[in-house]
Design a protein around this nucleic acid. Sequence first.
DNA 1: GTTAGCATGTAAGGAGTTACATGATTTT
DNA 2: AAAATCATGTAACTCCTTACATGCTAAC
Lengths: 203, 203
Amino acid sequence: MRRRDLLDFAILGLLHEGPLHGYELRRRLNDALGAFRALSFGTLYPRLKALLERGWLVEDRSQAAPGKRPRITYALTDSGREHFATLAAQTDPAAWDDEGFDVRLAFFGHTERDVRLRILEGRRSRLEERLDSMRRATYESRERMDTWTTELQRYGEETTEREVRWLSELIEAEHHGTTNRPPASGPEQASSNPPSSPHDQDQ
Amino acid sequence: MRRRDLLDFAILGLLHEGPLHGYELRRRLNDALGAFRALSFGTLYPRLKALLERGWLVEDRSQAAPGKRPRITYALTDSGREHFATLAAQTDPAAWDDEGFDVRLAFFGHTERDVRLRILEGRRSRLEERLDSMRRATYESRERMDTWTTELQRYGEETTEREVRWLSELIEAEHHGTTNRPPASGPEQASSNPPSSPHDQDQ
DNA sequence: GTTAGCATGTAAGGAGTTACATGATTTT
DNA sequence: AAAATCATGTAACTCCTTACATGCTAAC
């Protein structure tokens, strides 16, 4: 899944909840998903056009009251749903690198459990590798490091360790969970606790 | 300071410790600095050429034993040192966005204290704004969120809060610190503690 | 001997931001 | 009345990764 597909995946995923127009789509992409933090219209609109051409979306311009700027809403087609499912089933390394992981996680509600587990575990190994190389770099450069470089590296390592712990908790939760696919339909009370996060007590 | 200058800044900064060749420079950029995690040679080498042309660096090909591949080392010129200092004095928003902050922090040893403070505070406000918009997004979407979306947002907020606390500690340390510019020359014992990090006890 | 790491470079292609262009509606 | 936000789009530009090309040296 290359960069481009990731955006497609996110758009198609968001539209599972119902039709949206470009502006709103961008807001969700930027605010909700950690990734695409600075997605611009210059990227989004041309991409929406491409998705239309492939038949994954249909547009609805009927909202345009005469004399008003058209407010175009986009809706998922069956083919688009299918394409999303194909992407959601993929478990290549792109699913767990910095680029893709957040987006994939955001749509775990539409992802099979075994795929979820592979992605979480892939992400964890990736971070563990990174932690190794960070520690090696810290060790190798210990001579020439000043206060801030040291602090930056320390914080970086701590952050990565923390994320590894978090992933381990999510993986644990997946193993214990009974549902394979919690209904993405009915919104659930936020009070529930499946991935259970005993974050503030641990360490 | 745009993207491009940031790479220049990092290269020039690294060369303050002494001449390096391209391959090694890349290793340092990738390993030590959190940013440029995947800087490729296709970016680095052309950039080094550009820095040569501007007179900020000089190359030394004399290491090339006959019949051997040349191992070109790059060294800082006075003009390069000057340009680095100019960049190090800048305190525009680019210094505290996701792109630039880590790199700027990595070279705080060559940065004046008032500049350091402005950058740290700029970064903190930036993150506080982000936190606000994350919380707003969480609130607005509370109806339609499934378990994983919730968890992703919770973790994101927690991570950002943690970074804000970290910055506050660094800012505190800057206010209390007596030295304006800890000697970037003599490598100090890693055991020292200026930005002092009582991380594992707090919260 | 063959793989992995050291070492330098170029060319093409992809991807996305910035800037521009336009205009309505809501808030202050 | 002005400013902010909603809303859609295009074009130019920048930048970077990927793939290619070459060849040495150390380790297994």
